[in-house]
């Protein structure tokens, strides 16, 4: 699957057509590791040396290449966004597994699509770029990936229900930009905050309705 998604080039403020795809290969993982990780690590060191430890990206140690064995497993779906010949974001979804159960009381135990990993290229990461005194290059990459997760949930008959564990630094994004419902901290997953969409919230997110 390849489809066009609009993103904003923040240098001009104009929309540009990027490509969302699900034929993710190990080459994309290697690209993320080679192109993104050195920038994230350099930024992490810069911020730590300035004493801005709370702004250090909490995913600086992620390594997409270790996920290569998961590529052929049907329970997993990977998405990428490409623009200007560069990978702008990557996401891993799970359609079955221990985290594919709703926790919100109103939809407890129903099936959902679990967003296991989302990462945007460091030059698009708002918290990181602002901390370094720059503007993110393209946006909203994270939102476009969450839209893809909601559409995958609908395709899997989960009606838009998705769930995820958020790193502390991205909680605000999922609560405020995505308007997901925070359900609680998960002691089984480093005490990360679990957030979830109901079908109505997912639809509002897709259509841009702000209730």
């Amino acid at each position: 699957m390849k489809t066009r998604v609009d993103i904003i080039d923040n240098r001009t403020g104009e929309p540009v057509a990027a490509e969302l795809f699900d034929e993710v290969t190990v080459e994309h993982f290697i690209e993320a590791q080679q192109e993104w990780r050195p920038i994230v690590l350099k930024a992490a060191r810069q911020l730590a040396s300035r004493g801005s430890r709370d702004l250090v990206p909490q995913h600086f140690h992620w390594d997409w290449t270790v996920k290569a064995p998961e590529l052929g497993v049907l329970a997993n779906t990977f998405y990428g966004i490409r623009y200007d010949k560069k990978l702008q974001g990557l996401m891993k979804l799970e359609t079955v597994g221990e985290f594919c159960r709703c926790r919100l009381p109103e939809q407890a135990d129903r099936s959902l699509v679990y967003v296991d990993y989302v990462e945007v290229a460091p030059w698009n990461l708002k918290t990181l770029m602002v901390a370094l005194g720059e503007k993110p290059l393209y946006s909203p990459i994270g939102s476009r990936l969450i839209e893809a997760a909601v559409l995958k949930s609908k395709e899997e008959d989960c009606k838009g229900r998705i769930g995820l564990h958020s790193l502390p630094i991205t909680e605000q994004f999922y609560r405020q930009a995505c308007r997901m419902t925070p359900v609680g901290r998960d002691s089984a997953k480093q005490n990360l905050l679990w957030l979830e969409y109901t079908p109505e919230q997912a639809e509002n997110f897709l259509t841009g309705v702000r209730p």
Partner: peptide, 22 residues
């Protein structure tokens, strides 16, 4: 209980089986 169609549920079961087997 899962609020999905029977087809979707069987597809989930198949994927789960593949994951466990792998």
């Amino acid at each position: 209980r899962k609020d999905v169609s029977k087809t979707a549920l069987l597809r989930q079961a198949l994927r789960l089986y593949q994951m466990v087997e792998a």
